[in-house]
C-alpha cells in the first residue's frame, strides 16, 4: 500500500498511543425546514472523534444519521449554539482535509470526466501537475482501478464507481473521511471486498473515519466505536466500543465470540431504540 501518511499517525490508528481529538461535537443541534416550519432533527449531540479512529454511526431510517454526518462535513449548518470543530477549527463549510463520500456515487462522479479526471477534480490547481499525476495513479492503484483510468464512470459497475469515489477522496490525502452508507447499494461480495480495502486504507493512512451504515455486521467489523442515534430530535442513545483485534478478517473476525456478542449488543441497542 502506497498511500502513507506519517508513522506516528498510523500508529495512533492502531491504538497504541493516546489519541488527540480530531473532531468535536458539543451540544450540536440541527433545525431543518419542513412544511410546518423548522423542525429539530438533531438535539444536543455530544461526542468526539479521535485522530485515526473509525466510528460507525447507526440508527433507524430517518433518525438523522445523514444529517449528523453532513453537519460534520460542513454541508448543513447546526444551530448557532452548537460547537462543531474539525482539527481544532470550527466547521463552517466543508473543512480542509476532510472529504465526504456519498452513497449516491453515480451522482457524485462527473459523467463527462474520465475516471482519471474525476480523481483529479479536487487536486487541479492545488498541487503541481507531477504530484497530481502521482497521487491519482497511487489512489487508483489503492482501489485496484489503475487499468480503468481512461474509462468514463458510467462505463463501470456500481462497485467500481464507488471505488472511484473512494480513490478521489484518497487522492486529497484527507485526515478525515465522512462516509454516508458508501456500500449501501452494493452486493454482498463487492461490499466485503470494499470493506477490506477501506480497512487497509484506514490502517495505512490513519485517517479519522465516520461511517454511516444500516448494516450491523459492517459497523462491528469496521469500527472502533459505534454510535447509535435515536429519538426525535435525535441524540446519541448508545455508544458501544468495539475492541476487536486488527487487522480484521471477513471470516475469522466474524467468527470470534466477541464479534457475535457485539453484534448482539448493537442489535439490541437498535431494537430497543425503536420502542
Amino acid at each position: 500500500m502506497t498511500v502513507e501518511r506519517s508513522a506516528d499517525v498510523s500508529s495512533a490508528a492502531l491504538g497504541t498511543q493516546p489519541r488527540s481529538v480530531a473532531c468535536q461535537c458539543r451540544n450540536a443541534s440541527v433545525d431543518l425546514g419542513s412544511r410546518a416550519g423548522p423542525r429539530r432533527i438533531l438535539g444536543d449531540i455530544n461526542f468526539d472523534l479521535h485522530e485515526g479512529e473509525f466510528v460507525a454511526i447507526l440508527g433507524r431510517s430517518g433518525s438523522g444519521k445523514t444529517t449528523l454526518l453532513r453537519v460534520l462535513g460542513g454541508l448543513v449548518d447546526p444551530t448557532p449554539e452548537s460547537v462543531v470543530t474539525f482539527h481544532g477549527r470550527p466547521v463552517a463549510g466543508p473543512p480542509q482535509d476532510v472529504v465526504f463520500v456519498f452513497q449516491n456515487y453515480a451522482a457524485s462522479l462527473l459523467p463527462w470526466r474520465t475516471v482519471h479526471n474525476n480523481v483529479a477534480l479536487g487536486l487541479e490547481g492545488k498541487v503541481p501537475v507531477a504530484v497530481k499525476r502521482a497521487r491519482i495513479s497511487e489512489s487508483l492503484a489503492t482501489v485496484g482501478l489503475e487499468a480503468r483510468a481512461a474509462d468514463y464512470p458510467w462505463q463501470l459497475s456500481g462497485g467500481m464507481q464507488q471505488r472511484v469515489q473512494l480513490a478521489r477522496s484518497l487522492a486529497m490525502r484527507p485526515r478525515g473521511l465522512l462516509m454516508d452508507e458508501p456500500f449501501g447499494s452494493l452486493d454482498a461480495m463487492t461490499k466485503a471486498s470494499l470493506q477490506d480495502q477501506l480497512q487497509q486504507v484506514h490502517q495505512h493512512t490513519g485517517a479519522t473515519i465516520a461511517f454511516v451504515t444500516h448494516d450491523i455486521d459492517e459497523a462491528v467489523f469496521l469500527s472502533d466505536r459505534i454510535l447509535v442515534l435515536d429519538g426525535s430530535p435525535a441524540t446519541i442513545a448508545h455508544e458501544i466500543p468495539v475492541e476487536l483485534p486488527r487487522p480484521r478478517d471477513q471470516l475469522a473476525t466474524k467468527e470470534l465470540p466477541e464479534f457475535l456478542r457485539l453484534r448482539r449488543q448493537v442489535y439490541d441497542a437498535i431494537v430497543e431504540t425503536g420502542d
Binding site: G73, G74, L75, P94, Q96, N104, A107, S108, G122, M172
Partner: peptide, 12 residues
C-alpha cells in the same frame, strides 16, 4: 443532483 455540488464543495 445536489450531491454533485456537495461533492464539489467537499473537494474544496
Amino acid at each position: 443532483n445536489p450531491v454533485m455540488f456537495e461533492m464539489a464543495r467537499s473537494l474544496q
